[in-house]
Amino acid sequence: MFAFPDIVCNEGETLLVTGNSGVGKTTLLHLLGGLLRPESGEIVIDNTVINSFSERKLDHFRGQNIGLVLQQSHFIEAFTVLENVALASWLATGKQKMEKAKQLLEHLDLGNHLHKLPSQLSVGQQQRVSIARALINEPKLLLADEPTSSLDDENAFKVADLLEQLAKEFKTALVIVTHDSRLKERFSNQISLS
């Protein structure tokens, strides 16, 4: 059982949620992402209360409005980088936005890797692909779960910069859950769970 304080994050803003292991950072993230349902309280995204949605409606809402970047990037192993990103657009909207996926990947410096399998990329590159995937549908909310913990300093800052920059660009509220001290120094808007 976890209890969380009220958390607000506006569009274009970045909020860092920090705390030690076991305080419920990931649980909070899953609540925000509609993967778990709260026992009490409300989760409001873009003026919509999502707690009471049916499973199917929640899946749909999540696909269109929430982007997730996870600690370890998981991919459809059998799909290429480009297809992985395009799949996200298809699942959310029913359309494969190939062009947009290409642009986004090129924007993230992955133009040369479009037709490779995810497993052929480095960890840093994989993390950037999952950012592209999370942003393809221009979500209202971008959730990042320890996005930098498996990256070296250079890549960690690169990813942090990218996330912040893209959140502004896409007018997305960005919530990063982390215990990475490098990020704590990087972002000022922080909430610490305990």
Partner: peptide, 16 residues
């Protein structure tokens, strides 16, 4: 199972 979880995160229904 991560692939499946991933699909669900991206809006795939259980039925899919």
């Amino acid at each position: 199972k991560y692939e499946f979880a991933l699909l669900r995160i991206q809006g795939a229904s259980r039925f899919q």
